[in-house]
Simulated scan of single mutants.
Amino acid sequence: MNKAKLIAAAGLAISMALLAGCGDKKIDGSSDANFQKSAKAIYDSLPDEKKASFGMALAQGQALGIHEKGQSFAQALDGKTADEAIAFIKAGVKEKTTFKW
């Protein structure tokens, strides 16, 4: 992925993160619009110290294309809470960035 596309994807993910939320709230990945709306609701409900983690996770996940085979990023996060989404994305980032011999 070239630098411009990576920056654009990160910007989009950060924008989506600013539209998100947490607690028992879950991500709705049924469509991009629902994903953005639910992510904002989750983000808005998070304590300040957790907003950065959630926003960064969404940005990284979007930029690196973290998802399950045959699913979009939003679909892969469908039904997950903020903590579950962060854990899922961290695992995906680790998988994508670990060098395999």
Rank of each mutant, 00 (worst) to 15 (best):
D78T: 05
V93H: 11
I14F: 07
T98W: 09
I66P: 13
L77F: 15
A87G: 05
K26E: 06
A8I: 08
A17M: 03
K94H: 06
K37P: 00
L6N: 11
A87F: 08
W101I: 02
G92Y: 12
I27W: 03
I14M: 06
D44A: 15
I7Q: 13
D32K: 08
M1I: 06
Q36N: 08
S45D: 14
K96Y: 09
S38F: 07
Q71F: 06
K5Q: 13
L77N: 10
S45E: 08
G23W: 08
D44M: 06
E49C: 05
K94E: 14
M1Q: 08
E49H: 09
W101L: 11
D44N: 13
F54I: 03
V93L: 08
V93I: 13
K50C: 02
D24S: 14
S72H: 14
L46E: 04
P47Q: 08
G29Q: 03
F54Q: 03
W101P: 10
A9S: 03
S45G: 14
N2V: 01
A39T: 09
A41E: 13
K80G: 06
K69L: 07
Q71A: 12
K96D: 05
D83E: 15
A41N: 13
G65H: 15
G55T: 10
S53N: 14
F35W: 07
K40Y: 06
Q36R: 06
D48Y: 05
L77R: 11
G70Q: 12
A85P: 09
V93Q: 11
T81N: 07
E84W: 07
E84D: 13
K80A: 02
D83Q: 11
Q71M: 15
A9C: 01
K5P: 01
K37L: 12
L19Y: 01
L18N: 10
A52V: 13
L64A: 05
A82P: 02
G65M: 06
S15A: 04
A59I: 02
I89C: 08
A57K: 03
A10M: 13
Q36L: 04
A39R: 00
S53W: 00
M1H: 06
A20W: 00
A13E: 02
A82V: 03
G23V: 08
L77V: 14
I27A: 05
K94S: 11
A20L: 09
A20Q: 05
A74E: 15
T97D: 10
K69T: 15
K50E: 10
T98C: 07
G21Y: 00
K51T: 04
I42R: 00
I14K: 09
L46M: 10
T98Y: 11
D83F: 04
S31N: 05
A63K: 02
I7C: 01
A74S: 15
G29S: 02
A13S: 07
I7M: 12
D32L: 13
K5N: 13
D48Q: 10
F54C: 09
N34I: 02
H67R: 15
Q60V: 01
A76N: 14
